[in-house]
Design a protein around this nucleic acid. Structure first.
Length: 201
DNA sequence: GAATAGATTGTCT
DNA sequence: GACAATCTATTCT
């Protein structure tokens, strides 16, 4: 199963987050760092659609230094720090001035696993290697330095991958968003053991 | 396996 | 000064 490691065209990302999120499940995320190339197959995503979506950082049209990249063109990386310790990786969707983004919550290790294991400081073969937003960033070497970086770059891109059988559920840890938290805007590959939170189908 | 609490820092009010 | 789209170790059943 050698996937075609060719970046998706920029136009691929120019759709609303709710449409883009399910399409990204099954794709291959490739990151090149000084340690070499690491790649993971995306198995879990969430859609965030500001300004209406109260769970999004761009809720209510909030536009700050942190959310600025979401108001730009699609196909760029939106990185943010969680709880002081974890970075999260998002893909900007839609068109300029429409602050949509897709959060990548989990990937399945595909290549460069040695480098991932080193960065994570744990034994290989553990499903905990990158089954969460912060974990996959650490495993792939993604940090705030990647903020705003284009996915049409040779150090960071997403390529076509084997299709996935999709499931969906409400998003994780956005209880503060009221009715928006109940929407099934989280997408994952059914049966994949690298999905962060086991779906209760 | 499930539940709980502490960690730790950039960004915003 | 408070908070956050989380992670980890610890403490239970």
């Amino acid at each position: 199963m050698t996937p075609q490691l060719r970046p998706l065209v920029p136009a691929f990302y120019e759709r609303r987050a709710l449409d883009l999120a399910p399409l990204l499940v099954g794709k291959i995320l490739v990151v090149r760092t000084e340690d070499g190339i690491s790649a993971g197959r995306i198995v879990e995503t969430e859609a965030y659609e500001g300004p209406e979506d109260l769970a999004a950082h761009s809720a209510g049209g909030r536009r700050t230094k942190r959310t600025e990249v979401m108001y730009g063109p699609a196909g760029h990386a939106y990185m943010f720090l969680l709880y002081g310790t974890s970075w999260a990786f998002n893909i900007v969707a839609a068109t300029p001035d429409v602050p949509h983004a897709v959060l990548v919550r989990a990937v399945e290790p595909v290549a460069g696993i040695d480098a991932m294991v080193t960065r994570r400081g744990m034994a290989a073969g553990r499903r905990e290697l990158c089954n969460g937003p912060g974990k996959l960033c650490k495993a792939l070497g993604l940090t705030g330095a990647h903020y705003g970086q284009s996915l049409a770059s040779d150090t960071l891109y997403i390529a076509e991958g084997p299709p996935a059988r999709l499931g969906k559920s409400p998003r994780i840890n956005v209880d503060y968003a009221g009715a928006w938290a109940k929407r099934a805007w989280r997408f994952y590959e059914r049966g994949n053991r690298y999905v962060s939170v086991a779906p209760r189908h």
